[in-house]
Simulated assay, not measured.
Amino acid sequence: MPAGLTLSLFDDAPPPRHAAVFKEAFEAWLADQRGSGLLRREGSIAVYEDMWEAFAAWCLGQSPVVALPSLDLADLQAFQAARFGRKTSDLSLTPRYALRLMRLIDRVLRHHASRNEAPLNTAAADWIKASPEMRYADAAHADPLPDYLSVGEARQLIAFLSAARPRPGASRDALAAMTWQEVRNRASVALQLGAGLTPGDVRALTLESVIAHAGRVSERPWKLLVPGNGNSPARETPIAPWAAELLQHWLTVRADAGITGLFIFPSTRTGKQWQKPSQYECAKRVLEEAGMDSREGGSFRLRHTFALRQLRRGTSPQQVAAWLGIEAAKMKRYERVLPGVIDVV
Rank of each mutant, 00 (worst) to 15 (best):
P2H: 05
A3K: 13
G4H: 06
G4T: 05
L5M: 11
S8I: 04
S8A: 09
D12C: 11
D12Y: 14
R17L: 15
R17G: 10
A19Y: 04
A20F: 13
A20S: 13
A25F: 09
A28K: 10
W29M: 04
W29S: 00
L30Y: 10
A31Q: 14
R34H: 12
G35K: 13
L38K: 14
R41H: 13
G43C: 07
A46Q: 12
A46M: 08
E49F: 06
W52P: 01
A54M: 09
F55D: 00
Q62F: 07
Q62N: 08
P64N: 09
A67E: 15
S70M: 10
L73H: 13
D75M: 04
D75Y: 06
D75E: 09
Q77V: 10
A78I: 05
Q80Y: 07
A81I: 05
F84H: 13
F84N: 08
T88K: 14
D90R: 03
D90G: 02
P95L: 04
P95S: 06
R96C: 07
L101Q: 06
D106N: 15
V108I: 04
V108C: 01
A113P: 02
A118V: 08
L120N: 08
N121D: 08
T122C: 08
T122R: 12
A125D: 10
P132E: 03
M134G: 05
A139F: 07
H141D: 15
A142C: 10
L145C: 06
P146F: 05
D147G: 14
E153V: 03
A154S: 11
R155M: 12
Q156V: 02
L157W: 00
L157I: 02
A163R: 03
A164Y: 00
R165C: 05
R167S: 13
P168K: 06
G169D: 03
A170M: 11
A170G: 10
D173E: 15
A174H: 11
A174Y: 07
A176V: 01
A176W: 01
Q181Y: 12
E182S: 04
N185F: 00
R186I: 01
A187W: 02
S188V: 00
V189W: 00
Q192A: 15
Q192Y: 06
D201V: 00
T206A: 10
I211E: 12
H213Y: 11
P221Q: 11
W222H: 15
K223C: 13
K223H: 13
L225F: 13
N229S: 15
N229K: 11
S232G: 12
E236T: 14
T237P: 07
A240M: 12
L246V: 03
L247S: 04
Q248S: 15
L251V: 02
T252H: 13
V253T: 03
A257D: 01
I259S: 06
T260E: 15
T260D: 12
I264C: 01
S267Y: 06
T270K: 14
T270D: 11
G271R: 09
K272N: 14
W274R: 11
K276C: 06
P277G: 08
S278A: 15
Y280N: 08
C282S: 15
K284N: 10
A290Q: 06
R295L: 11
G297P: 07
R303M: 05
A307D: 02
L311S: 03
R312V: 07
G314W: 02
A321T: 03
G325I: 03
E327N: 09
M331I: 04
R333D: 07
E335W: 06
R336L: 04
P339Y: 05
V341N: 01
I342H: 10
